[in-house]
Design a binder for these strands. Structure first.
Lengths: 305, 305
DNA sequence: GTAATCCTGCATGAAATTATACATTCACCA
DNA sequence: TGGTGAATGTATAATTTCATGCAGGATTAC
């Protein structure tokens, strides 16, 4: 193995502290394997070495171990055989499997007594879970929100299937931002309106690009960038044909196993974005939200809940 | 790699704990690497594949990845070079190092609960679960779908915050229904357009009415009924100020504990509705979906995934 | 429409990893 | 002392993994 240097730190010392992290999971796996096997002296040294570095163990090659222990590579192979495996790779895969069980193993798979439509919803549920997990680090979202909040005006692009998303975002954001301009047509119209927004002081643009990715959106993003606008993109994958034309990418997974995809996760991301934008706004504009609500109530625009 | 079968599970099931497990650590490492790198289509597929299985990624060989992605092994090597590494092993060691750094941190980081934005997503998750459960009985959905599919034309109403939803439904439904007419303006316009639709043969209308319920929507629904149209309503509660003006009600719960609500569940319900509508359509119109897809591909409207 | 560029897979060679054959050493015992 | 057998290392073969040259094909630019 060439890059063994990257694996030499970490670990958790012989007196293994924190039970139940993944390393010790490999450790218990090893202990189980060693149970009731008669090992030769050098094989014991190998075992001891692995037990002391359960994290690295899963990555080490037979020569790595041999060198570290100060023995020969065939001895490592024979060590694997002595433990009942059919070769060193088989032994190592056993360790890797133990590590993986630890990582994924939390919740059990549920019985799938779901009808097709329910399966569809379930699929979107998982997408939302993924979104929630990626938001564990609030940095990127807050960063984008701040940029968007600071841009006056704020152009928002959504073409084709993403047009409703852009409008939805526009509707929410308008409560917190004085000048949101939704663009849902492509071609020269798009460039015209971007151009005007740029001239009016816009510093960045928000784009929604869900599958299937319109070619025209890519062109629009490229154009916006050349025009000096920072491009924030909401899409379903961190890397795709659109992402390379964006400065910041927020991902909201969508299902593609069904004929018609919903936009559950992107919709939630919209709400989260606007939510974050509010905190990036000056106080007097936060107040204007309340204002609108009140005036709307006065005009009896809405029915009682 | 011989024992790839041992690595096929993983991920983090339905009730997934939180961020900051080792897999997502590899994930963020990958994201950082991908940032600002121009990738070819097949390289993007590779990146996606790895992002979807961060746990396994650290163990995969270049041929493993190539086979899984359906590309050639040299493409994987080139992928590593494109990311600035000096070879595939170097790239893989980088990922492994990220994983190791995470393990040192131990279970401490895991204990952290959800941040506010995550709580928001979590709230929508529960809404989706409720939606899934209510769809356990496919009857109402199929019934509404059949009615909608049979109405020519099919008027779809969504005002204010629900306008994007109506447009989204319209976009999807247009693939399966020859004459969908989205109405997102209120007042006399609404009645005009409903009237024309009725004259053209419409038998029912679909309305989206999420909080806060526009007074004008209630008026519109009442008007539609008097005009002899059957009213199907998508809203958030089985009974509210709008439901009494509808013949059939489909409920899609939304959160109201946050300043800005997303439309996750209604969005999914849209997709489910259209999905069900397809099965209520004659075969030749189902075929027209494919047709559109093909013609769109021919016109190279979309970018490759 | 044509040329230039980029992308991609195939074939192949180089490097690394693992398994096996064989020789040597050492402990133990007659 | 010489024999026996397990243990271990050396050398090497077999397998796997990785890198690169080259040609065909697609896309873009002019």
């Amino acid at each position: 193995m060439k890059g063994e240097d990257v694996l030499m730190a970490g670990g958790q010392g012989p007196s293994g502290v924190a039970m139940a992290d993944d390393g010790s999971r490999v450790g218990v796996c090893l202990r189980e394997l060693l149970e009731g096997h008669r090992l030769s002296p050098s094989q014991r040294r190998i075992a001891r070495h692995l037990l002391e570095r359960p994290h690295e163990a899963v990555f080490l090659s037979s020569v790595d171990i041999a060198e570290a222990v100060g023995t020969s590579q065939p001895s490592v192979t024979r060590f694997a055989f002595a433990l009942g495996f059919n070769g060193f790779p088989e032994f190592r895969d056993h360790l890797r499997a133990a590590l993986r069980d630890g990582e994924g193993g939390g919740p059990a798979v549920k019985a799938t007594g779901l009808n097709p439509v329910q399966a569809m919803v379930d699929s979107e549920l998982r997408n939302l879970e993924r979104l929630r997990d990626t938001l564990g680090d609030p940095g990127p979202l807050a960063e984008v929100a701040a940029e968007l909040a600071a841009s006056r005006p704020l152009p928002v692009i959504g073409l084709r299937v993403s047009a409703p998303l852009a409008r939805f975002f526009g509707y929410l954001a308008a409560k917190a931002h004085p000048d949101v301009r939704v663009i849902d047509t492509a071609g020269s119209t798009l460039e015209d309106r971007l151009s005007r927004a740029r001239a009016a002081g816009a510093t960045c643009v928000l784009a929604f690009g869900l599958p299937r990715y319109p070619r025209e959106l890519r062109d629009g993003l490229a154009w916006a960038r050349r025009a000096g606008l920072r491009v924030a993109l909401v899409t379903d994958q961190p890397v795709n044909a659109l992402a390379e034309h964006a400065d910041v990418v927020l991902t909201a997974p969508v299902s593609s196993q069904f004929a018609f995809d919903s936009q559950a996760a992107p919709s939630v991301l919209c709400a989260a974005l606007v939510h974050s934008m509010v905190y990036a706004l000056p106080a007097h504009e936060q107040a204007s939200i309340e204002e609108f609500e009140n005036s709307a109530t006065e005009r009896r625009l809405f029915l009682p809940d």
